[in-house]
């Protein structure tokens, strides 16, 4: 489905949320709802998005929505999907939304169950690379080197931020052989919305992992959200890919990556990184891309 901004509805199904200025999460959600429309049942986990949209008396979703317990987005939408089927509700989309912690950490078991059963839902993981709602703690999606309040940095050098590479959700979900799994970025809205449109028209569990930069947690000015999201892709530290019918497709493969410093150095969470750290990150990136390209080629 080719997306033309001019044809999209001006109707907002998410509005007035108390997200920080420049937050990437509502970009992903409002654009997804542009595609999915008013007949969408939304289930958001306990997260920034939950905490900023549904605090009585204000409710910012204009479609049916519920907040799930932190580990339970996937299981709650599984029940919703069964109910929609049993009640014979036509053309209703069940949309689960969770952050990286609610997906890759505490929500992973239920997500695995969902994918294995292939319940008919769309699951969006908006990834801001840490537990932002509780105040920037490290998640398993926090990238190597990143400072968070629980992956601190000190002057003696015994603490250098996050020490592990991030968990690869795209691989984990696609290993369940779901009908559709994709990565996306809020900085590439056309690509993201095309993926949501594709997911809407498929039966079974569809998973879209969207990179959604966080000015507060990453430490950059609020107007730079789209810019940093784009730089993540251009430096090869994030990627746009799809898994469908057992095949991996790369939607965008930069011929030459921009230097990782251009993305990392201006962010407060990476400002302790040194030249040798950038080299480590570049090596990790190249290894990851070698695997990714091999998968895409097979």
């Amino acid at each position: 489905m080719a997306i033309n901004y001019k044809d999209l509805s001006d109707e907002e199904l998410l509005y007035g949320a108390k997200t920080c200025p420049g937050c990437g999460a509502p970009i992903a959600v409002r654009l997804a709802l542009k595609i999915l429309g008013a007949r969408t049942f939304v289930c958001v986990t306990a997260s920034c998005l939950g905490a900023t949209t549904t605090v009585y008396p204000q409710t910012s979703f204009f479609v049916n929505n519920a907040i799930a317990a932190f580990p339970a987005t996937a299981s709650t939408i599984a029940g919703m999907s069964a109910a929609v089927e049993m009640q014979g509700l036509e053309d209703v989309t069940i949309l689960g939304i969770a952050g990286d912690g609610g997906t890759a950490d505490i929500g992973l078991q239920a997500l695995s169950g969902l994918c294995e059963r292939n319940d008919n839902v769309i699951f969006i993981c908006y990834d801001n690379e840490a537990y932002m709602n509780t105040g920037i703690q490290r998640s398993s999606a926090t990238p190597y080197g990143a400072w968070t309040t629980t992956s601190p940095v000190n002057e003696t050098g015994t603490a250098k931020g996050e020490t592990r590479i991030r968990k690869n959700l795209f691989d984990i979900v696609s290993a369940h052989r779901v009908p559709y799994c994709a990565t996306a970025s809020t900085s590439y809205p056309r690509d993201f919305m095309e993926k949501i449109a594709k997911a809407k028209n498929l039966k079974g569990t569809k998973f879209v992992h969207v990179h959604a930069p966080c000015p507060t947690g990453w430490g950059y000015p609020s107007e730079k959200t789209i810019e940093y999201g784009r730089l993540a892709v251009e430096t090869g530290l994030w990627y746009l890919a799809e898994y469908e019918n057992g095949k991996v497709t790369l939607n965008l493969a930069p011929k030459v990556f921009k230097p990782v410093e251009s993305y990392l150095a201006p962010q407060r969470r990476f400002r302790h990184l040194k030249e040798e750290d950038f080299k480590v990150i570049e090596k990790q990136r190249d290894e990851e891309w070698a695997l990714l390209k091999a998968k895409a080629a097979s």
Partner: peptide, 27 residues
């Protein structure tokens, strides 16, 4: 498209901004 808060309107001949809900992020 990029506005996180969806405050830019495109229904009129000129684009509009809903200043009640614009947070001034500058994106």
């Amino acid at each position: 498209t990029y506005c996180p808060d969806g405050v830019i309107g495109k229904e009129d001949t000129e684009l509009t901004i809903d200043y009640d809900y614009c947070k001034g992020c500058g994106i």
